[in-house]
Amino acid sequence: MAYSDKVLDHYENPRNVGTLDKNDPNVGTGMVGAPACGDVMKLMIKVNDSGIIEDAKFKTYGCGSAIASSSLVTEWLKGKTIDEAYAIKNSAIAEELALPPVKIHCSVLAEDAIKAAVADIKAKQLAKETA
């Protein structure tokens, strides 16, 4: 199966690979896995006091499409509010990367990773408010 140029670009030069300090109260972590293929993805976002995502890092163990999907979303996330981030749909990721139908689940994985990271940061903020 041929990968699109955009997938290859992200696969060969992945953006924002790495981790952020998971103990930082402003960092949210999302971890998801795709049982269909055994891929795992970790996405971390750092949110400033105005609720804007300042930084995003990822680590993905999986196929080229999964790596490209997570690399792409780290680029998209920076500068967005967490609510805007939460609204990102897998179809937009799949369209941008021209993923074939068999690889759509990689974009689902990236969308779910964002949602999990946002949920984590919201839980941390809630804990801070009620502390």
């Binding site: 971890m31 998801v32 896995g33 795709a34 049982p35 269909a36 795992v40 970790k42 680590k59 163990y61 759509i104 689940h105 689902v108 994985l109 779910d112 990773a113």
Partner: peptide, 21 residues
């Protein structure tokens, strides 16, 4: 069992996966 749209796995299992990786 292997739905492509269900990516929720137990957190400790995913952490372990990352450590192994």
């Amino acid at each position: 069992a292997i739905s492509e749209t269900n990516t929720a796995m137990p957190m400790d299992f995913l952490m372990q996966q990352m450590e192994w990786r």
